[in-house]
Design a protein around this nucleic acid. Structure first.
Lengths: 204, 204
DNA sequence: TATTTTAAGTGACACATTGTCATTTGTCAA
DNA sequence: TTGACAAATGACAATGTGTCACTTAAAATA
């Protein structure tokens, strides 16, 4: 977490620093980004940076969390709107994400994150589908899911269903960016895979 | 790829360098690893390293490929043995991987790779399930799959089935390492998820 | 064998980056 | 006005990277 000094900063200076950082993380992935560039572009002395953040990762995950927190709210709204149908909810989520693709800087930031995912970065992303960060992950979403349509009512199995869905959704995001799929292609792939998940890979 | 000079090296010297590198990559993930440490531990001058490799990534992906190439051969044998049943094949693959867990150095190397996966690293891992690197990925494995048991005979859909299976298998590997699951827990989770994939998440 | 040519080995160097810390600056309450 | 505390600052030590001019070794040729 950023230090208190960062939050004490005047709005303008804080935003300026954030912009500089976002620019750097849009340019290159986390481990290639340099604090030197950030402070240079923000026009602040190097020492100041360390007044606000522990290190590079500190500001990175702060920004990434900002980015993904909005998405979590959206996802839960969709889950509600779709009456607890998890696959319809993630599908609309995916559609909307593609349609409302953020501006270039945000886009490149996400792309760099997705193509250079560490376990920690993946956690930040997938938290979108896992409920409030402080409550037990998943419980919240498991409660919202409509179990009538599912193949099981067992919570453990539902937990694993979620894990599967999240893994496949995540893979689709990564593929969209890495293979630079068009929106139509991306949606086509996504739809096929969601249907396969619903109906199963094997005959019954 | 390593340069020719590397392959011209006398066996002993080459193995010595490989050992030093593996040690470093077992200690820390790729982006924290340092060539300085490798050459120091191998007892060779810095300049020599660049005689053999382009850079850090060059030797890293060479080692990772070595590691995963064996696995690919194993997987294809299993697919044959299980008569083209993809889920049975990956399940045995997973079991055997856990049972034959490699020595500490290899273990830590894999762990660091899995918890700090870039798209390039994931590609190296998932290539295990995709056939010979030079032929069209997937074609080889799609041919070997027994389609009688599957829900579709359409190649496109089978391609996506594979993508799904790989994503879920991969997730299970990462989870095993990140949550430090016992073998029994890992196998239990894996089995549940494979059954869900087979039968589908929704009622039909 | 002597000489030339080619490949490999070497380590000092220029440059970049990180995180720290002693010092300075600014602000606010007494 | 002054003292005290938070914040700002930039020079510095430490560490790392990739290169290059030079040395050494080996192989080819005369």
């Amino acid at each position: 977490m950023p230090k208190q000094t960062f939050f004490n900063l005047p709005e303008k200076k804080r935003q300026n620093l954030i912009n500089a950082a976002e620019e750097e993380f849009a340019r290159v992935p986390l481990h290639e980004a340099s604090i030197a560039n950030i402070v240079k572009s923000a026009g602040i002395p190097r020492g100041s940076f360390y007044q606000y953040f522990e290190d590079k990762e500190d500001i990175y995950f702060y920004l990434l969390k900002e980015e993904t927190d909005n998405n979590r709210v959206k996802f839960f709204q969709m889950l509600e709107r779709h009456d607890g149908d998890i696959i319809n909810a993630v599908t609309e989520f995916y559609y909307e994400f593609l349609v409302e693709l953020p501006d270039d800087k945000e886009f490149d930031f996400l792309k760099n994150a997705l193509l250079n995912v560490t376990h920690k970065i993946e956690d930040a992303f997938t938290a979108t589908f896992k409920g409030k960060r402080d409550t037990g992950f998943f419980n919240e979403v498991i409660e919202m899911i409509n179990k009538d349509r599912l193949n099981t009512e067992n919570d453990t199995e539902i937990y694993h269903m979620l894990q599967i869905v999240i893994a496949v959704v995540f893979r689709n995001f990564v593929e969209k960016f890495s293979k630079e799929l068009s929106d139509d292609e991306a949606i086509e792939h996504f739809t096929i895979e969601m249907n396969l998940l619903k109906n199963g890979l094997y005959k019954n």
